[in-house]
Nucleic acid binder design. Structure first.
Lengths: 335, 335
DNA sequence: CTGAAAGCGCTTACAG
DNA sequence: CTGAAAGCGCTTACAG
């Protein structure tokens, strides 16, 4: 390690020479795939330490035709929802002795495509596509021979979040608390291009209870800001007593808007969100919301990906799961 | 693509054969490193599309001895602070046409070491170590020949956050608002093993103003929970009029504790945090805090890493930067 | 403008 | 118990 002199990385041949054996012997000593006499083995490991030899990742990968790496491709991890999912997926993968490498492509369509292509040139053994802008079919195309599962909308065996049932549950809860005039700030991305399924449920519910609802549903972009503007728009139309939102971020926006307009939650305005991000429990008052089942979703994605690696992959049938409603303090009886 | 039949991945040789040229010609057509006649080039690209040929990542990497990949190794991305930093680093890296791959090792010491070792076997051209449990020296050792920079405590050219100056600024601000009895919930991880530098500044400040402070500094673990228990401990000692905390999470804990104890912020208790995570702006009341300069920190780390790749690397001298105080509504004059 | 051959650093039949 | 050789899929001197 003379400074200034370019030190070539030490290879298996260097080790073999130093010990006075063949590279195959060194290789076998490391992998343990055949018996090596103890003294030889000892000298090999000694030299490995001494020379700080580490088998080249690629050379190994090329032979094995596998890296035991799974790529998780997402837009960014700043969003608390994706962050939790990424953490959970990463941990789940390691249970199967895979290692997750995460790539962040941002929201650009091209950047996302590019990353999916690049990852599927041998870098990883499989891909979990979390990119909202790229659907299951396109991901399959982009990834070619490497298996890919697309989060929550994989065509092979989609796991569906049953927003219809959850919306009914929530509306009945609100109704039972005496709320009649209810607003909804819809999520644009919930079904990835398809309309937010809660809207139809809401409309039907209101109509079956003979409540008008024109102007009480607005569409947000899942951000705190659009939660605020959404609440503003609803209240311009009518002073509702409850608002629910397509995700927690927008619920936080409603909180913020209520604070600025001196409406107190829950006494004057009840709020319900979706996802149960960590802040939902700690915001004041704690938010009633539905818990995103990160563990189940991650387990499903990983299981599906592993299945797709088999030659004889048979798509399972699609499953639908409900998120649990976590009742906290953001809903009060209508006074 | 006959289903059921194992389709070998198409190689450059397949393309060459299909076109009727040599592999070198195909290689050169792709890289553009030498002139290829237009008709040949066209046929090559036609076949590439047709066979969906993608150059094998490893074979390329092995020849080039480079992947243009930089590894970011962190514990998890759930923490809003690391999430923002990871996003920013990832974007910064792509400005230099590197791609970031993120590995999440959790908080285990062994898992972190293992990941650093694995990443530095050729997988990436450089590493950014965000792991709190592994310091600069150990990271260098673990990464061997591949350059690594350790976030905020790299021995080569540390970028230091000047907590001393910030703490003075904050204390003077609080003092000018009439606060005399002030508590502090310290951060355990701020200086990675070394004591939180704010404690000494706080002590000196209080003593020079002839204020007692015994029991008014407690140590938290950067979590909402320890923010709550910290506030509890301070109030058991004395009813202070202001508390500042080593990070925003603990400030949120103070909010939570105040809510449960029916103390209103800022009227009865002023609060200041550190980092300015996104929720700091949207919590009620919006939190006064110091903005973590993710852009600057990321730019510095990347610049340092790129410099370390040069043979003739000269350590810069260490720099100290202050975070900007963002005044919002969590501090009121002492009544 | 194009091709044959060597080599990157491993692993694994094959042979002893 | 150990070694020589082939091969993974590329790229790049070298030669024409």
């Amino acid at each position: 390690m003379t400074p200034g002199i370019m030190t070539r990385k030490t290879t298996i041949i260097d080790v073999a020479k130093a010990v006075g054996v063949s590279p195959s012997t060194v290789s076998h000593a490391i992998s343990g795939k055949r018996e090596i006499s103890t003294p030889v083995k000892q000298r090999i490991f000694e030299k490995i330490r001494e020379l700080d030899y580490r088998p080249n990742f690629f050379a190994q990968a090329m032979k094995n035709n596998s890296t035991r790496l799974i790529g998780i491709v997402a837009d960014e991890c700043r969003n608390p929802g994706s962050a939790l999912l990424i953490d959970t997926l990463s941990a789940e993968l390691s249970r199967f002795s895979y290692e997750a490498v995460i790539g962040l492509a941002g929201l650009g369509l091209d950047a996302g495509r590019e990353m999916l292509r690049r990852f599927s040139t041998g870098l990883v053994d499989g891909i979990i596509n979390l990119l909202p802008q790229i659907d299951s079919n396109e991901a399959e195309l982009l990834c070619g021979a490497v298996p890919v599962v697309t989060h929550l909308r994989d065509t092979a065996a989609p796991l569906r979040l049953d927003y219809e049932a959850m919306t009914r549950e929530l509306l009945e809860y609100l109704w039972s608390m005496g709320h009649r005039r209810i607003g909804y700030i819809a999520s644009r991305t919930r079904r990835y291009g398809l309309p937010d399924p809660s809207i139809a449920v809401y409309t039907r519910f209101m109509e079956s209870h003979h409540q008008s609802h024109a102007g009480l549903v607005v569409e947000g972009q899942d951000s705190i800001e659009t939660g605020m503007t959404g609440a503003e728009a609803i209240f311009r139309k009518e002073r509702v007593s409850a608002i629910f939102t397509g995700n927690d971020q927008m619920a936080f926006g409603v909180y913020r808007w209520a604070y600025e307009n001196k409406l107190s939650i829950p006494e004057e305005l009840s709020v319900i969100g979706f996802d149960d991000v960590p802040q939902a429990a700690t915001i004041i008052p704690p938010l009633t919301t539905f818990r995103f089942p990160a563990g189940e979703v991650a387990a499903h994605a990983v299981r599906l990906l592993l299945a797709k690696q088999q030659k004889n992959f048979q798509p399972e049938k699609s499953r639908s799961i409900k998120m649990q409603m976590i009742i906290r303090n953001s809903v009060a009886p209508k006074s």
